[in-house]
Nucleic acid binder design. Structure first.
Length: 556
RNA sequence: GGGCCGGUAGCUCAGUUAGGGAGAGCGACGGACUCUUAAUCCGUCGGUCGGGGGUUCAAAUCCCUCCCGGCCCGCCA
C-alpha cells in the first residue's frame, strides 16, 4: 500500500544502508534491521508477524505499537519480495477481571460505564471476553465489540491486519495438540516456569478450564486424563489484583478445547500454531513474559521463538497513558486532528526511545512530518534525517506524490477561522500555498487539514481558536482609536489589497498618534471578540468589502 | 531490595550496536520585507550529552557508581 511494486526505478540503495568492513549492513530505518534479523533465520513464507492484546476495553494509541511496529517490518519485507502475513490476536479467552471505567461505542465514541448496564456486565467477572455479551447489545460478544474497534482503527491507519480470535484457536482445535503436549510434559513445564514465577509448585497445572456451571475461568485442576483428552477441576475462588472472583464450587470435567493455557504458555503456543517470525512487545513484557516465553518455546514446545523487539512506552501530554486516570487518546480521536501519515510517522521513529505524544503541541509533530516529507522530496536538506526519510517516507503515505500540498498546520488553523471554502482557497492562494496550476486533488487533500487543525484549535482552546464573528461584539473604543478605524474603513471602501490594508493600519495609527497595538486590538475585538488574532490587514482583505466597512464603522 | 529500558539545547529529535568534529528543526531573541500577531528571508543566543569516577592519545558512545522517569521481579495480560 505504500510503495509501487512495479516501479523498478526505486534506487537499490534505498534500503541498503552503509556496509562496513565485516560486510554487515547498517540501516537508517530500524525496520530494516529487524528484517535482516528475520531473514538471517531463513524463514518459511509467508513470514508471519504478530501483535496482540486482550480486548479488555478501549484500545488507546499506545496499543497500536503492536500493530504499527509490525506493519513497518512487514512492509519492508514485502518490498524486498517476501510474502508476509501480519496477524493480530485478540486474546479474548482471557477473563474479564475488573470493569473498565471507560468504554467506546461501535463508532469509537468514548462513554462512561454508567452509560451501559454496568450491573449486568459485573455479573460476568471471571468469564472469557468471548462469553460476555456486548454491553452495547450489537456485536456477538464483548470481545467481538472491542476487537472490531481495533480493526476499524487499523483500517483508518491503512494497515491491513488479519484479526485472529484466540478463543477460536481453542474451539476449532488449533491449540489442542499444544495443550496436550504441555500437559503431557507438565513436569518440564512446571520446572521451566518455576524459574520465573515463584508461585509455581508441584500442584501447578498449566491449564485453566472454563467452569461448565458458571462459565468462569478456573484455576484448580485435580486430574489430567491424556487418553480422554480431559481435565477434572473444581471451580474455586480466583484472585485478581485486589479483587476476589468467587467460584461456584462446581466439580466438573473439561476437554482441552474448553479452557485456556495460562498466558506464559499461551503466548509461545501462539507462536507455534501461527508460525510467528516476529513480534514486537512493550517494555512490560521485556522482563516478564519474554524471557519465560523464550525458554518455554525452546524447552517445552521445542520451537524457535520469534525475533523479539521491545518498544518503549510513550506518554500522553507528558503523563503515562492510563485508562484508569483517563489519560488516553484513541486513534480515531487523533485522526480527527491530523492525517494518518502523521501518526504513522510517529510510529516510524525509533521504538527504543521513550517519547511524548503531546496533543497540545500537535502542530510540532505535524511540522516534523512535513519536514520529513520535504527532505524525502529533496525540497530541503537535513543530514540528520535524510537517510531515514529516504527509506521510511514511502511507507507512510498511500501514494508518493510530489505535487501534494501541505499547509503549515498553524496556517491551516488560521484558515479554519473562516467557514467559507472559497475564502479559504483564496487565502491559501494569496499566501502562495496553492496556484492556478495546483491539481484539484492536491487542494482537496490539503483542505482536509484545515478541518483537522480547526478541531484541534477548538479542542485545545489555544491561540488559534478564533472565529470570525458574524454578529458584532460590544466594543468600547477611545475616540482617537475610533477615528483611526474610520480612516481604515474609508481606505477599505476605496478598494485595496490585504497587504495594503495591513500597511494602512500602521499609517492610521501613526496619523492619530496612537499605539499600533491599540488599533490592532480594536480590530481583533471587532472581528474576533478577542484581543489577538491572525495577521489582521491581510485577513480583512480576504473578506467581503461591505462587511468589513460596516464592521469598522460599527454601523451593523 | 534485585533486574531491565529510557534520560543529548527551552521543545521535538538525530548521533550510542562498531570510541575521534556536539548536530538539525522548531521556539526564543535581534533584524529585513512601507507591516509586533498566520507566511517568507537573514542573523544571534542556546548544551558540564542526567551527576560523579575510571579505561584510553581520544568517551554522548566502553566500565563502575549514583540521581530521575517508567517497567519487571505476586496474579494477570
Amino acid at each position: 500500500m505504500s510503495v509501487d511494486d512495479s516501479d523498478d526505478s526505486v534506487p537499490a540503495a534505498a534500503g541498503e544502508g552503509d556496509t562496513d568492513e565485516t560486510g554487515e549492513t547498517r540501516h537508517a530505518f530500524w525496520a530494516d534491521e529487524v528484517a535482516d534479523e528475520i531473514l538471517a533465520r531463513d524463514p518459511d513464507e509467508p513470514i508471519v508477524i504478530k501483535g496482540g492484546i486482550s480486548p479488555s476495553g478501549v484500545a488507546h494509541l499506545g496499543n497500536f505499537n503492536e500493530i504499527l511496529r509490525g506493519y513497518f517490518v512487514a512492509e519492508v519485507l514485502r518490498e524486498r519480495g517476501y510474502e508476509v502475513r501480519q496477524v493480530f490476536t485478540s486474546d479474548d479467552k482471557d477473563p474479564l477481571r475488573k470493569l473498565p471505567r471507560k468504554l467506546a461505542d461501535k463508532d469509537g465514541n468514548i462513554v462512561g460505564l454508567g452509560d451501559v448496564d454496568a450491573g449486568a456486565l459485573g455479573q460476568n467477572l471471571g468469564k472469557p471476553y468471548t462469553d460476555i455479551p456486548d454491553p452495547f447489545g450489537e456485536a456477538e460478544s464483548y470481545a467481538a465489540h472491542f476487537a472490531a474497534l481495533i480493526e476499524a482503527d487499523a483500517e483508518r491507519l491503512g494497515v491491513p491486519v488479519e484479526m485472529i480470535s484466540n478463543t477460536e484457536l481453542y474451539s476449532d482445535g488449533t491449540f489442542e495438540p499444544v495443550v496436550r503436549h504441555v500437559l503431557e510434559n507438565a513436569d518440564t513445564a512446571r520446572e521451566v516456569l518455576a524459574e520465573y514465577q515463584s508461585k509455581v509448585d508441584d500442584d501447578y497445572v498449566p491449564f485453566n478450564p472454563v467452569c461448565g456451571n458458571c462459565g468462569k475461568i478456573t484455576e484448580t485442576v485435580t486430574a489430567i486424563d491424556l487418553d480422554a483428552g480431559t481435565v477434572d477441576y473444581v471451580c474455586t475462588d480466583m484472585t485478581a489484583g485486589d479483587n476476589t472472583i468467587s467460584g461456584c464450587d462446581h466439580e466438573g470435567t473439561a476437554t482441552f478445547r474448553e479452557g485456556k493455557l495460562p498466558w506464559r504458555f499461551e503466548w509461545p503456543a501462539q507462536w507455534q500454531v501461527l508460525g510467528v517470525d516476529f513480534e514486537p512487545f512493550g517494555k512490560d513484557h521485556a522482563e516478564g513474559s519474554w524471557p519465560s516465553g523464550d525458554d518455554i518455546a525452546r524447552n517445552v514446545l521445542d520451537i524457535q521463538p520469534p525475533v523479539p523487539m521491545t518498544y518503549e512506552w510513550f506518554t500522553l501530554n507528558g503523563e503515562p497513558l492510563s485508562s484508569s486516570a483517563g489519560n488516553i487518546v484513541t486513534v480515531a480521536e487523533v485522526l480527527e486532528l491530523a492525517e494518518p501519515e502523521v501518526l504513522r510517522y510517529f510510529f516510524a521513529l525509533n521504538p527504543r526511545r521513550a517519547r511524548d505524544f503531546d496533543l497540545r503541541r500537535l502542530d510540532l509533530l505535524v511540522n516534523d512530518f512535513d519536514r520529513f516529507e520535504r527532505v524525502y522530496f529533496d525540497e530541503e536538506t537535513d543530514e540528520n534525517i535524510e537517510q531515514l526519510a529516504d527509506r521510511a517516507y514511502p511507507f507512510l503515505v498511500d501514494e508518493v506524490r510530489e505535487e501534494r500540498v501541505r499547509f503549515p498546520y498553524t496556517f491551516a488553523a488560521v484558515l479554519g477561522m473562516v467557514d467559507d471554502p472559497e475564502l479559504r482557497r483564496q487565502m491559501a492562494k494569496n499566501e502562495g500555498h496553492i496556484t492556478d496550476e495546483t491539481p484539484e486533488w492536491a487542494i482537496e487533500d490539503a483542505m482536509e487539514r484545515v478541518e483537522k487543525a480547526r478541531t484541534w484549535a477548538k479542542r485545545m482552546d489555544n491561540e488559534y481558536n478564533y472565529r470570525l464573528q458574524t454578529e458584532m461584539p460590544d466594543v468600547d473604543l477611545d475616540d482617537d482609536v475610533a477615528d483611526a478605524l474610520a480612516d481604515l474603513a474609508a481606505f477599505v471602501e476605496d478598494g485595496h489589497t490585504g497587504e495594503e490594508i495591513q500597511g494602512e493600519i500602521y499609517e492610521a495609527a501613526k496619523r492619530h498618534d496612537i499605539d499600533t497595538g491599540d488599533l490592532f486590538q480594536a480590530g481583533y475585538l471587532l472581528f474576533f471578540d478577542q484581543t489577538q488574532g491572525p495577521r489582521l490587514g491581510e485577513f480583512l482583505g480576504e473578506l467581503e468589502q461591505e462587511f468589513v466597512v460596516k464592521r469598522l464603522r460599527r454601523t451593523e
